[in-house]
């Protein structure tokens, strides 16, 4: 067990973070908004935690761990800051549709990156080092990551079944029809965008501690594409899609690495499983979009399962 934890602790926590980041992209998608802004808010949340823990809070004495209360305060500040920023940029940006919104949100992610490369407070190109640890090892981050995932998944599950969730779904389906029914498009789009931003920001705050260091390479444009892949492959029409997509696809490279270790495997196959990881990954994405265009998990599938269960 101890060996398993030291080997896979980092991976398991990363999987949980990935699931939440996929959810953060799924939330604006609930109103039909293809936003790729999540890495920007993730980066923001990370910098807030990094700065607060290294410059604001009193230094943690030698041999002691960083107080959990401080981490919770950082998460709260990250949530509030992400929400404010999301409302601020959401109101103008969400007038854009489809690919234009996607491009605008990519621009936002890029602005955050360039700012962090140039500002004193974010440590410029070097970033912020030595972010204190609230836990003894990486796997113990599950104490915070697991409740966060359960809470956010439960939240989105409840949201989908609420009046607000129905309004989101109506907007995603047909904005004109939704407007005719009295659903306010701007309000609901900004709301869903803000929810996604808050989740990404809070995950960023914890990630900064988890990774120990934070710099401009955290939360870039390619991360957004990765989250989008989690959502599309996992399933973009139910809360479970992004959660499973994030968990499974983050584990995939490690599973391939483990497979390569199997005995009797021809050397070149083993080599490919390790070195060709990204190729296999891309191939799986292509195959999944061809054979599971709705993603692995669909609402119909869940309904069928529920019926069999009762």
């Amino acid at each position: 067990m101890a060996e398993f934890i030291t080997t896979y602790g980092f991976l398991i926590v990363s999987m949980v973070f990935a699931a939440m980041l996929a959810l953060s992209l799924y939330l604006p998608l609930m109103t039909g908004q293809l936003s790729l802004a999540s890495p920007g808010f993730y980066a923001l949340g990370g910098y807030i935690a990094a700065v607060m823990s290294t410059k604001v809070f009193p230094p943690t004495p030698q041999g002691e761990i960083f107080p959990l209360v401080y981490l919770l305060i950082e998460m709260l500040v990250a949530a509030v800051a992400s929400a404010l920023l999301a409302v601020l940029i959401g109101i103008p940006a969400l007038r854009l549709r489809g690919i234009y919104l996607a491009l605008a949100t990519i621009a936002f992610v890029e602005v955050v990156r360039v700012l962090s490369l140039n500002l004193e407070i974010t440590g410029k190109a070097i970033g912020i080092f030595g972010i204190p640890q609230p836990f003894l090892n990486k796997f113990e981050y599950m104490w915070i990551a697991a409740p966060m995932l359960i809470l956010s998944t439960w939240f989105v599950y409840r949201l989908e079944r609420s009046r607000v969730g129905r309004a989101f779904a109506a907007l995603r389906e047909d904005e004109l029809a939704a407007t005719a029914m009295g659903v306010n498009p701007t309000y609901n789009k900004v709301l869903s965008f803000t929810m996604g931003a808050v989740l990404a920001g809070v995950v960023g705050a914890v990630s900064a501690h988890f990774l120990n260091t934070w710099n401009a390479r955290q939360g870039t444009f390619d991360a957004a594409i990765l989250y989008l892949a989690f959502v599309i492959i996992g399933g973009s029409r139910t809360y479970l899609g992004p959660v499973l997509g994030g968990l499974l696809l983050t584990a995939l490279p490690e599973v391939l690495r483990a497979l390569a270790g199997v005995e009797f495997l021809p050397a070149f196959v083993a080599q490919f499983l390790v070195d060709g990881r990204l190729i296999i990954y891309g191939l799986l994405i292509a195959l999944a979009t061809i054979f599971f265009p709705q993603g692995l998990i669909t609402p119909t599938m869940l309904k069928r399962l529920a019926r069999r269960g009762t």
Partner: peptide
């Protein structure tokens, strides 16, 4: 008509009462 195709009949009706 513009019913919300991917939503159930009941959910369409609930949305009519959104306000």
């Amino acid at each position: 008509r513009r019913v919300l195709a991917r939503l159930s009949v009941a959910d369409n009706l609930f949305l009519g009462a959104y306000t």
